[in-house]
Design a protein around this nucleic acid. Structure first.
Length: 511
RNA sequence: GUGAGCGUAGCUCAGCUGGUAGAGCAUCGGUCUGUGGCACCGAGGGUCGCGGGUUCAAACCCCGUCGCUCACCCCA
């Protein structure tokens, strides 16, 4: 958990504003999305077997009956129910409370009497009975108790205690959901949307990575999958990085094929990996089964030579994918965009296909990817929309971008205080309040002391607040109908009428 | 999920073999009631992350726990 404080927050705002400005010129408009969604949405879109869904989501039950949800959490999150008799008994009490709570809630119609709930209740009752008859002291009932506990977990998951919700781990799924829900396919051409805000993943924080992190992203959804769209969204991305003055941004691209050609490639890859299995590390060996593409991502030194000899997807694309990829590259060329082809660039999310890309920045160590994206033509259909709707998008990791900018020395922003309005005496305060309002109306940043201070104190505060000017308003100035304005950098001071003060300050602002 | 390191004032840190909690910076006030940065003097600010244990006595030793940082895994 982390706070973003001034003056650092100013840099964050600059980054957000740059995105709004640049994306706006490409015809993108902002979509504001909810922070949490139905768990189901992410499970389906991101992919059940990905790390995000299998272990990194913050999910919770939005209970119909809060007490039941509380108990369900205790029971299913119980660290080790079979550790000792004391824990075992406590665990049984919780299960008992849960069963009776479930019965009561169903009787009172607080919980639906759906078949799932009835089954769960019956199952829980049976299991609880068996569990009550076991003891941890006897080895064979230990095994029995273990099975009962698994069954209890399952029954609780089956019970419909309320909505399953998840703090969003990414936003593409939400954008697609909104696109379908609001019938945006009737809009002319492709729909171009951008978003920014916090995302959540459950993991151990480290440099540039947080459990609540921020992304700025954009998506193009609609009937066309023209390679020019891929190239333009990349062009926009680079324009953005240019605007925030990120140095050393490097673009990598790849194509990972489609439903037609990728499965065949994966089998080919798997077969080749089997031949060299013994030479690979434990992680890569495991991935031969789970996700062979990820082996290509390995950064282990001794695997590099092996990986270099593996079959490459670019040489195994179907005709359509090959043509699409070639045209993306040509379109990038038309825009004068330099890129690096990286045949090992694969994505961690299931929904990507064809074009994938990544931007890396300097100063981030091994976490050097600052933006990732790609095409996901099947996702809209997967989530229940029109099969003909195509999609492509990217997400910028704002935390890393800001970190990288700071390391490049963009952190310091000059203090914005134009005027410290030092007033002395009750009559001067009245005048100062009016003057402060007119200065602020004109766009100047003004600090107006809330209570009278001694002269030296007041100017001292103006100095420490890093004000550019002190405007002095006391009895003398009031009588003469002027103010004294002092430039704090060199101490020069002059008396001006109000109209002159405004033009003076304007000139000071734009030298 | 795994491994390592660190938690003492707002910040950076000191605090020896256990014996009443310290410094610098910052803040506030004074010297200084019409002119800032300096100097000097003074003040406020701490459940030593939290809980338990050992001890006559714990910031210090032991156990647990929470938090932060870094790395692994993975990704943005």
């Amino acid at each position: 958990m982390r706070d973003i404080l001034p003056p650092e927050s100013a840099l964050w705002n600059r980054v957000d504003q740059a995105a709004r400005d640049v994306f706006g010129t490409f015809g993108f408009a902002e979509i504001r999305l909810p922070i949490f969604e139905q768990t189901e949405l992410f499970a389906r879109s991101v992919g059940q077997e990905t790390d995000i869904v299998s272990k990194e989501m913050y999910s919770f039950v939005d209970n119909a009956v809060p007490q039941l949800g509380f108990l369900a959490n205790i029971i299913t999150e119980w660290p080790d129910p079979l550790k000792d008799d004391e824990q075992f008994e406590a665990y049984q009490r919780y299960v008992k409370d849960f069963v009776s709570g479930l019965e009561r809630a169903m009787a009172a119609d607080e919980l639906s009497k759906s078949p799932a709930n009835k089954n769960a209740l019956q199952n829980l009752k049976d299991r609880f009975e068996t569990l009550s008859g076991t003891s941890l002291r006897v080895e064979q009932s230990k095994e029995l108790a273990k099975n009962c506990v698994s069954a209890i977990y399952l029954a609780i998951r089956v019970a419909e205690l309320g909505d399953y919700l998840t703090l969003r781990p990414e936003a593409t799924a939400s954008v697609v959901r909104a696109y379908i829900e609001h019938g945006m396919q009737v809009q002319p051409g492709n729909v171009k949307l951008y978003y920014m805000g916090p995302m959540f993943r459950r993991e151990r924080p480290q440099k540039g990575r947080y459990r609540q992190f921020y992304q700025i992203g954009a998506e193009v959804l609609g009937p066309s999958d023209a390679p020019g769209i891929d190239a333009e969204i990349i062009e926009m991305l680079l324009a953005f990085f240019d605007r925030v003055k990120l140095k050393g941004a490097a673009l990598s691209i790849n194509s990972i094929g489609c439903k037609q050609c990728r499965p065949a490639y994966i089998e080919k890859l798997r077969a080749e990996l089997e031949k060299v299995r013994e030479q690979l590390g434990a992680d890569s060996q495991r991935r031969i089964e789970t996700n062979p593409l990820r082996v290509l991502d390995s950064k282990l030194e001794h695997e590099q030579a092996i990986i270099e000899k593996l079959p490459r997807i670019a040489e195994n694309l179907c005709a359509e994918c090959r043509a699409h990829y070639e045209e993306v590259k040509r379109q990038l060329g038309l825009r004068g965009i330099a890129y690096q082809e990286n045949w090992r660039l694969v994505r961690g999310l299931d929904y990507y296909m064809r074009t994938t890309f990544e931007i890396t920045a300097t100063g981030l160590g091994s976490q050097n990817a600052v933006c990732g994206g790609g095409r996901y033509d099947g996702l809209v259909e997967l989530l229940g929309g029109q099969a003909t709707t195509k999609g492509i998008g990217f997400a910028i990791g704002t935390d890393r971008l800001v970190l990288s900018l700071q390391e490049q020395g963009a952190g310091e922003t000059p203090g914005g205080l134009d005027v410290y309005l030092a007033w002395f005496g009750a009559a001067a305060q009245t005048a100062a309040i009016g003057l402060a309002r007119r200065l602020r109306d004109a766009g100047f940043v003004v600090e107006l002391p809330a209570a009278e201070m001694k002269f030296g104190k007041s100017l001292g505060l103006a100095d420490r607040l890093k004000a550019r000017h002190a405007v002095i308003l006391g009895d003398n100035e009031l009588a003469a109908g002027v103010v004294a304005v002092k430039r704090l950098s060199d101490g020069s001071q002059q008396k001006l009428a109000e109209a002159e003060l405004f033009s003076y300050l304007r000139a000071e602002r734009n030298p």
